[in-house]
Amino acid sequence: MATEAKVDPMHQFTIEPLFGTDHWALGGFNIAFTNSALWMLISAVVLYAFMLGGMKRELVPGRWQMMVESMTGFIENMLSANVGKEGRKYLPYVFSLFMFILFANLLGLLPLGLVGLHPFTFTSHFTATGVLAILSFAIVLVVGFYKHGLHFFSLFVPHGTPLPMIPLIFVIELVSFLVRPFSLGLRLFVAMMAGHVLLEVLSSFVIGGANAGAFFMGLVSIPSFILMVAICALEILVAGIQAYVFALLTSLYINDAEHLH
């Protein structure tokens, strides 16, 4: 055997500037158009195309319009269930968030390696998910302080807290509140990265086992391959669930900001 097949499960997350844009800068900061940015753009374009198919606005919807409407109705229901009638005005943000993350997760799972392309899941980078998490958190802060002023701090003192407990509870609630953007961003990043690493590790087992001869192929490669198929299905589920969790938690936090408790 000439060269040992080497699969680096982390290589798929490498960010590479594309089209010779690595010297692009804005105010001293590098803004190279990377493969990550490319897949953000692809997700956005695919999402736009998906929505365009639902804009026929027919009284009796076709299948495509039905899909778009059920997605919109799903987010609308989630907002009205969690935030109430004020939730309506957050629909553009939460809908964009959910659909953008969902499309990014799903497109990152496409088996484009078969045709020589390399799909990139930018939701597996905390620099990307962090931006979305901080956006959601900023909306919560702005809405909370705008609507309630300094009274917003009563969010950290649940009703019925005994007086001597208030300082302690306040600190605990404040910390749990401040952790929200981190948990929001890290959850998505970790879930997406873990799934992709797992698939890559299993694929290295398949390749390594096949290279090691027929016995190891039967012992390692075939079970690993079967497991990969199952985990691919699981990853599609996770892609949806993580997008849903992100949108759901954002709407719950917005509910806190709107109604305090």
Binding site: I15, N30, T34, L41, A44, F100, F122, L132
Partner: peptide, 11 residues
């Protein structure tokens, strides 16, 4: 910086 910039622009 590139990640944050493009994320903000595209989102």
């Amino acid at each position: 910086s590139s990640q944050i910039f493009w994320m903000l622009v595209i989102f």
